[in-house]
Amino acid sequence: MNRTDALDMVRESISRVIPDADVGALGPDDAFRDMLEMDSLDFLSFVEVLSERSGIRIEDEDTPRLTTLAGCADFLVAHTQ
């Protein structure tokens, strides 16, 4: 998976969980969880969707790396190589 695809997948996954979120306005280094007021249930759903789409099993321990679009994309790219 290249980085562009990874970023798209992350944005789509966020949109699935929070349909009215303006993901286009999120910068790569914005803490999207705070900006979108995602609670722990939303974040768990996001991890679920992302895991499902990418086929990568995401552990609890990985979640601190998944706070920004860039962080998520890096994680996906690193785990598909």
């Binding site: 722990s40 249930l41 768990l44 991890v47 679920e48 895991s51 499902e52 099993r57 995401i58 552990e59 609890d60 321990e61």
Partner: peptide, 18 residues
Amino acid sequence: WLHEHNRHSPVGERLLPA
């Protein structure tokens, strides 16, 4: 206990501290 449970569960069956 929670992390151990989640390590052995599908993502959809994970628990939150809540």
